[in-house]
Design a protein around this nucleic acid. Structure first.
Lengths: 236, 236
DNA sequence: CGCTATTTTGAGATGGCTCAAGCTATGTGG
DNA sequence: CCACATAGCTTGAGCCATCTCAAAATAGCG
């Protein structure tokens, strides 16, 4: 159980609640419930009625959709401080995706209705939400374009670089990604198969671009990876 | 020039301004400017500073991004009553895509700042915007998943069915799509090449699923197309 | 310390892309 | 109003990036 006084700083840090007075933040914090979930368990599942709005406190969550024939696609990775489950809850209708914990995770939860009410009462919250959603949309548009126009190697390089930016930690040999993703999950994030990911990582490790242990990925040569990501496929 | 009294009904119909009192709608309408653009001309271009927020009055607009090596990807088609240019304008920063008219088009325009102000003053507008953005995001997530998991034939079938839903008109032989899209534009909307689109349309016309004239597309057998769209690729 | 999930690697198949060539609407200028 | 120019479309042939499937190697976990 997260002590109530531990919730407040989280609320204050979260982009959605930025710009509130301390009193307002405190109020928002008291409205929050919490939810604790172990590795591989889910906060919610695609298709369930969307009733809650989450902000991740600790851990790491993946938001994924499953296609008819069982292929999984990862739409987004959530880190501490980020909201999720928002769309479904705000639009009404079912959750459009599943939120599964990659590590033991803890989140603050609000009822959908409460968030609606907050939006009405505090215009800043509404504005922040609009910004957040617009940002998400833009991000997905970029990935959509990549998926439509780039080859796998380029896309994987982009994926790794983004992971590095968002959740990289500088270590001796380079930038350590502290997200524990399997080859398969990297594939689902990039729009390819685990086999192709494995091959590319092996090759890049040989070339000294990165270090790929089973669940530890260190980017050694960011410039090299960027070159791969930008590269026009055949420079005819 | 659109007479001012012609703007009001458009504002009232538009999802973003739903729920306003007549007086408020009228005020919003007076704040609007307008912009008229001929076929193939653009309302704005990717990279330009985003200063305006548009609602299409008449015509048809495509929102597209161009990749480094010149491939174009269509992110969205806009019909009358729909907003566009919103993200950029609300987030700040440059437009993330280009808005090009597929036919002579007319749009109402607001300054980004005015829309921000409206959001502050009228919580309904903020709520509507959040809904709209959440809806857009969901839609793109679906297309993203399709692009990542389905084959071209399936995706093209989905694209045609969506076009039918959004802008189909019932005619004698089936559902007429009244969007004038070239094979190339269909390809950019589906994530493939104009050649593959051409081949598939020819084949489907032979099979009696649709009628494909140069710029007139009639869906004749919706059930058949749906079957193609749902089809698990090899029913092993 | 053994069992199982994950990863690697190989070999082969193929969907869709590329490029080239010919065809056909369409609308424009004479 | 016609004929021609042009943008858009079709079709063929070959190729290649990536997927599929199989099997062996490895690493973590209990």
């Amino acid at each position: 159980m997260l002590a109530e006084n531990a919730r407040l700083p989280l609320v204050q840090v979260c982009p959605i609640f930025r710009g509130l007075t301390p009193a307002q933040s405190a109020e928002v914090a008291t409205l929050a419930g919490e939810r604790h979930v172990r590795r591989r368990a889910t906060f919610f599942t695609e298709g369930q009625p969307a009733t809650a709005f989450f902000i991740l406190a600790t851990g790491r969550v993946k938001i994924a959709q499953v296609s008819q024939d069982g292929d999984e696609v990862i739409l987004r990775l959530i880190g501490p401080g980020q909201m999720f489950g928002g769309f479904g809850a705000l639009i009404g209708g079912p959750y459009p995706a599943t939120a599964q914990a990659l590590e033991p995770s803890r989140a603050l939860v609000w009822e959908a209705g409460e968030v609606e009410a907050l939006m009405q009462r505090l215009p800043v919250v509404a504005r922040n939400l609009v910004r957040e959603l617009a940002g998400r949309l833009r991000e997905l548009e970029v990935r959509y374009r990549e998926l439509a126009t780039e080859r796998v190697a380029q896309r994987l390089a982009h994926t790794l670089l983004r992971l590095g930016e968002r959740s990289g930690r500088n270590v001796a040999g380079g930038l350590l990604l502290d997200v524990r993703l399997s080859r398969e999950e990297l594939a689902q994030l990039t729009g390819t198969t685990l086999f192709t990911v494995s091959r590319l990582l092996s090759e890049w490790e040989l070339r000294g671009l990165l270090e790929a242990r089973r669940s530890r990925l260190v980017l050694r040569d960011l410039a090299g990876l960027r070159a791969l990501a930008e590269a026009l496929p055949p420079p005819n």
